[in-house]
């Protein structure tokens, strides 16, 4: 389970992707997610995924990415079974692919953008400071809560808890002894953090300046232009061609499994 978080845990590295402006990376993640949501055909989704893979290599984060893919396997298996059972196998495969596309798009963002830089980017985009800060705090605490979850699971397993015991309903209920301590200790921590922020004069000035300024460079503009083109192209295919002239689309576009 916790392996999924690997894909969203920022690692300090010096790569092309890490040097990009957070706004660029955010824009790319949003574009790829939208494009992923536009299609439900297997081959187009695979193409989108293939377009993203070079960026993962550029960010030198292939290991983390593949690790979280394996973490996703359980959920993917679940989606695959349910959808195949109620709908078709092809639909199930494309749903899983869509999930992988979404996860990859956002893991690319979270792997390469430091939470603080993202907060800066949000402020540049005129989001109020309090909200930007809350967001970067939330991201900051994901790994902490992931570690805590493991400790809690260990503690309950030491008391004889077996997660894989019983029927489906029972299995879901097996997670209650893990979920409640997570929620309780998160609330406790939130109160502590709030107190410690106030004691350090959080929000005492309205005009807050920052030490680092974000700056868009040539490569940022270039990538944003490329992303926009991809988005426009995808929108054009889905909303114009597919509706008005689907015969222009090649056969492979609609290829699916026979079942």
């Amino acid at each position: 389970m916790a392996a999924i978080f690997e894909a969203f845990r920022f690692k300090q590295k010096d790569t092309f992707m890490h040097r990009l402006d957070p706004r660029t990376t955010f824009f790319m993640a949003v574009v790829f997610s939208i494009v992923g949501m536009l299609f439900l055909e297997i081959i187009p989704l695979l193409l989108i995924l293939l377009t993203m893979i070079p960026f993962i290599f550029l960010a030198r984060s292939v290991r983390q990415w593949s690790k979280s893919l394996r973490g996703l396997a359980l959920l993917a298996g679940f989606i695959l079974t349910i959808n195949t059972f109620f709908l078709t196998f092809s639909f199930a495969v494309s749903t899983v692919l869509r999930l992988v596309v979404l996860m990859t798009a956002f893991s690319l963002f979270f792997l390469t953008v430091h939470p603080d830089d993202f907060a800066l980017a949000l402020i540049k985009m005129r989001v109020p400071y309090e909200f930007a800060f809350a967001f970067s705090m939330a991201v900051r605490y994901v790994p902490t809560i992931a570690t805590e979850t493991e400790t809690i699971r260990d503690a309950q397993m030491s008391r004889g808890l077996e997660l894989e015991r019983g029927n489906i309903l029972q299995r879901v209920r097996n997670y209650i002894p893990i979920l409640i301590p997570i929620i309780v200790s998160s609330i406790r921590r939130a109160l502590q953090v709030a107190e410690s922020l106030e004691s350090r004069a959080f929000g005492s000035t309205t005009n807050r300046t920052s030490l680092y300024e974000l700056k868009l460079r040539k490569r940022d503009y270039a990538l944003m232009v490329v992303s926009t083109l991809i988005l426009v192209f995808a929108l054009y295919i889905t909303f114009i061609i597919r509706i008005q002239a689907p015969w222009f689309l090649p056969d492979w576009f609609f290829w699916h499994f026979p079942l």
Partner: peptide, 18 residues
Amino acid sequence: LARQVGFVFQNADHQLFA
């Protein structure tokens, strides 16, 4: 092993839930 080995974790809040 829980029958033979009892393990009390550092932070009680990590195991209380009922």
